[in-house]
């Protein structure tokens, strides 16, 4: 497990280094069209060829990695924050408030979230810029993905609430705010961290699904899902395997995240 985790950490560090430096590492602007070379095969000039509009695929993969892999953790942070607020409050207060909150969480978990996502995404104005569309896509993902984490956090806080050291702190007159911040907060941190890590690949995949359906990140800004729309024209995919580059990167990243988060879960 340790070796797998090490491999996952190295792979993710490498991908994130490339994603962070995408604008500097990209050989060309991701939106620039080399109109003399549409659908070009890999060459010294275009290492992964060009797309049907003549845009350098390698540059677009770099920027797509930046879009998908940097904003998914932001969405995961938002959903974990919401889950922590809702779950910790319910777990700490307990009683009817916890029952009510958990009933709401159960209801939310039962909803078909991809259908909800489509509904919320379709309400957005038509004239949103690509940058705004990417922000909104991940913000919606973050706002809709908190329920499962809230349940876990609530269970964790409930367990801690009844533990000896919390009862002791209460008996010594510790205020609820201080109790949450100083006593419960640090102890619930591993749960929050695990939930955060588990959420990242879920959001990367959700964005990929939405973008492949044409409802995610708007063109010309690339995302891994958006770039995979090229695969829908699969008739000549066998002779143009370089078009699989965004899928290969996505697959590698999700696998690495799974290896990393599963080992973290074991540790937590």
């Amino acid at each position: 497990m340790k070796r797998a985790r090490l491999f996952a950490v190295v792979a993710l560090a490498l991908v994130y280094a490339v994603a962070l430096g995408a604008r500097f590492l990209a050989p060309a602007d991701y939106a620039f069209q080399f109109r003399e070379a549409p659908n070009a095969p890999p060459s010294v000039r275009f290492l992964l060829g060009t797309d049907e509009l003549g845009r350098d695929r390698l540059s677009r993969v770099f920027v797509a990695a930046q879009t998908s892999l940097l904003l998914a953790p932001a969405a995961a942070a938002l959903s974990t924050l919401l889950a922590a607020l809702i779950g910790a409050t319910a777990g700490y207060i307990g009683g009817w408030w916890e029952k009510l909150t958990m009933a709401g969480v159960d209801l939310f978990l039962s909803l078909p979230w991809l259908f909800l996502l489509l509904t919320v995404r379709a309400v957005l104005p038509l004239d949103t810029t690509p940058a705004l569309s990417v922000m909104l896509t991940f913000a919606i993902l973050g706002c809709l993905g908190w329920a499962a984490s809230a349940r876990v956090i609530c269970a964790g806080v409930r367990q801690l609430r009844n533990s000896g050291f919390v009862l002791n702190a209460r008996a010594l007159g510790c205020s609820p705010a201080r109790l949450l911040a100083v006593q419960l907060g640090p102890n619930i941190k591993p749960v929050l961290w695990a939930q955060f890590l588990v959420s990242i690949p879920v959001f990367v995949l959700a964005e990929a699904n939405l973008s492949m359906l044409g409802l995610g990140v708007a063109e010309p800004l690339p995302s891994l899902g958006g770039m995979m729309r090229e695969l829908e024209n699969f008739s000549d995919l066998g002779s143009q395997l370089w078009r699989l580059a965004p899928l290969a990167l996505l697959f590698a990243c999700i696998t690495a995240f799974q290896l990393f988060s599963s080992s973290r879960e074991v540790q937590a």
Partner: peptide, 26 residues
């Protein structure tokens, strides 16, 4: 159908389909 409704911004259809699917899953 939901996807076509989302692309066509047909919100009544999309919300109805989402509501029906939600009721079935519940």
């Amino acid at each position: 159908l939901a996807w076509q409704a989302a692309l066509g911004r047909d919100l009544p259809l999309l919300v109805t389909v989402t509501g029906i699917v939600a009721a079935i899953t519940l």
